[in-house]
Design a protein around this nucleic acid. Structure first.
Lengths: 254, 254
DNA sequence: CGCTGTGTTGATAATGGTCAATTCTCGTGG
DNA sequence: CCACGAGAATTGACCATTATCAACACAGCG
């Protein structure tokens, strides 16, 4: 309902990567047509399923995750509004991880034929999705780095910085605050720590005046402070590709 | 030199995914032509470089890694013989992480035009590389899980299991042993632990009779033991895709 | 009003990091 | 053949981070 004013979030995200035609835009907005609501913590796809629909997140947070035999759960990726869970075209591989909602979500399922059609008919959209895949992979590598090389507070700070940047690209975060309805237990499964420890690390960030988290809203009080704690460099998210066609104003001096 | 007998490792790897024509094979073997040797610990590409060659590993171990401002290094992926560092076709994105050798390597640089040509002229190869990309992404998610949810010994065991499976697909590992010329310091940067701790965890695996590591060769003494410690499930590496065309011998009973 | 899930706290223990010294290995030159 | 030196592996002592367990507070909701 709110989206009808600003356009669907996928369109907003892709428009940042490529220039879309009005036909592209119509097509993208059409995807949101059959959207449905799902409650929080709903499993959507199980590990080793072979998916037959792409899934577009219109509202709420979803994630990829794995359950381990020892009972622990690891979240491997967040799907925010505008993110698309894609099908692979050539193969039908069983999923290496499950998919589910974290918060209440509005999702559009896109059946395989329709999805394949879209890719074929809309080269600009295909291109933008290809770009999204690249930054997705870069994000996975960044998470590996985060989990492998940073302490608790740094990890959490890094995660919060990433969320800020990602939510901003679809207009869901203002300069320094966003809606953040994530459970501490889910944060624990994201950051590879116990939820007691998540709680304490959150308190530390609060004590240090870096963030304020009340209700389901996060405010970053000292953005530079948080970024420097996290050693955050968001360039993996906004790939400054070499310009496609240098505009006439890009004339080198001399 | 040794490869001339068994074919280049990329060809061996791709043949596992798709059926290659003799033309494909000739093309793949041709890639190894201009190969050169690089010493261990050689940087090949820096973070934020825009690469102009794909890189094929023929021999030795290379890796992707990031340096953090705090001095730590995190390895995010191993490139084993047969693995290809690919270029992206549509964009020229700056790299989100660096690339370098771990051990002495034999590498073939494939200039962008030649690489693009290969993809265009050889649909089967393109398809197989696409598959390789999918398992690469699955491997990144598995690493996230490994770093986030497993203890030191489990993490190391998991890593060793993955190496075994991956090296086997190119014939570089036997049933339960392989050449493993990796430094403990590099292992530490891989697994997100200090190298002192890596040393102690290795000793624990040895004490428990799971592995033997001497010289530069690893022997897995109790494969089931190591796998169960790691809770290892290698299905993310060998995606049992739904068969392309059921062969006539695949007739269901009744 | 009393669930139920979530957040918070304290006490205690396990895991893993840091520092510093020592040994081992192996290639190089004498 | 041996001495040497550099990098790698190993060890011990000590400390920091983080997990675990258990109790309690708090909020939203039927």
């Amino acid at each position: 309902m709110i989206e009808s004013e600003s356009g669907n979030p996928l369109r907003r995200k892709l428009a940042a990567h490529v220039e879309l035609t009005s036909g592209d835009v119509r097509e993208l907005d059409g995807l949101a047509a059959g959207a449905r609501r799902y409650p929080a913590q709903t499993p959507l796809l199980h590990q080793s399923d072979i998916p037959e629909s792409a899934i577009l997140v219109l509202d709420g947070f979803a994630c990829r995750y794995k359950f381990l035999p020892n009972g622990r759960r690891q979240i491997t990726a967040y799907l925010l509004p505008g993110d698309l869970f894609e099908l692979d075209l050539d193969f039908r591989l069983p999923l290496d991880c499950a998919l589910g909602t974290l918060t209440a979500c509005r999702l559009a399922l896109i059946p395989r034929p329709e999805y394949e059609d879209l890719i074929r008919r809309r080269p600009r959209i295909a291109r933008a999705l290809q770009m999204a895949r690249l930054t997705e992979a870069a994000t996975l590598r960044e998470w590996i780095t985060n989990l492998g090389s940073r302490s608790g507070p740094e990890r959490l700070a890094h995660f919060l910085c990433e969320m800020l940047l990602r939510l901003r690209t679809t207009g869901l975060a203002s300069e320094n605050q966003y809606s953040f309805p994530i459970t501490q237990a889910d944060l624990a499964d994201t950051l590879g720590m116990s939820c007691v420890h998540v709680n304490r690390v959150l308190q530390k960030l609060r004590r240090d005046g870096l963030i304020e988290l009340s209700g389901r809203r996060l405010t970053i009080l000292r953005p530079e402070g948080l970024k420097s704690l996290a050693e955050y460099d968001g360039s993996y998210l906004k790939p400054a590709a070499t310009p496609l066609r240098p505009s006439s104003s890009d004339r080198p001096a001399a």
